[in-house]
């Protein structure tokens, strides 16, 4: 009896096999596919790098550039980088067909210009981030000497408001 039940069942269900790869497949909304950095929005703050559990996101400062690098070969597609990005520069795409011949193909790199410390002259932050801070000061109605603000963490220590030349602009 039972064998016929299954035969009947199979007939009732019919063919369920999908047509992929001949026909494309759809992923549901909110699918966590390949994360992508929007290079126009990224400020190189490295919050994603601190959050990434498998260290698929790395950063390296070389030749006056900060290289933010994401290696999809190690990415676990958790989406923590999206959660922590202050600029919403990373998003999970719907791409999942990531077949590659070489591991170098599985890389996205964003190279952002660095600025030098006005005291010691070493590179310490991205230009975008520095400009952003400057703008934030301005928007808060605070005037600051750009040269003084451009200091590496080491030389920023012990700086008081007076040292930066900070004074409220009277309107």
């Amino acid at each position: 009896m039972s064998r016929f039940t299954l035969l009947k069942k199979a007939k009732e269900i019919g063919v369920i096999t999908e047509r992929y790869p001949y026909k494309p497949t759809k992923v549901p909304e909110g699918f966590r596919g390949k994360p992508e950095i929007d290079p126009e929005k990224c400020i190189g703050c490295c919050a994603c790098i601190a959050a990434c559990p498998p260290n698929a996101l790395t950063s390296l400062d070389e030749n006056g550039y900060r290289v933010i690098r994401i290696f999809y070969g190690r990415c676990i597609f958790c989406g923590r980088c999206v959660d922590v990005c202050p600029e919403k520069a990373i998003r999970m795409t719907e791409e999942f067909e990531l077949t590659a011949d070489d591991h170098e193909e599985l890389v996205q790199e964003v190279r952002l210009k660095l600025v030098r410390c006005s005291v010691c002259g070493r590179y310490y932050d991205t230009e975008r981030h520095y400009r952003m801070i400057l703008k934030e000061f301005e928007e808060a109605g605070l005037k600051v000497d750009p040269e003084v603000l451009r200091r590496c963490p080491e030389h920023r220590m012990g700086m008081s408001a007076e040292v930066i030349g900070l004074r409220r602009v009277r309107k």
Partner: peptide, 30 residues
């Protein structure tokens, strides 16, 4: 051949196998 994903969707594995047979093309580049 690399197939990233954690885990990759079954379609991603099929894509790699289809790529082997020349039925699908590569979709990612550096």
């Amino acid at each position: 051949i690399y197939v990233p994903g954690c885990p990759p969707r079954p379609e991603a594995i099929l894509h790699a196998l289809a790529y082997f047979k020349g039925l699908a093309s590569k979709k990612i580049k550096k």
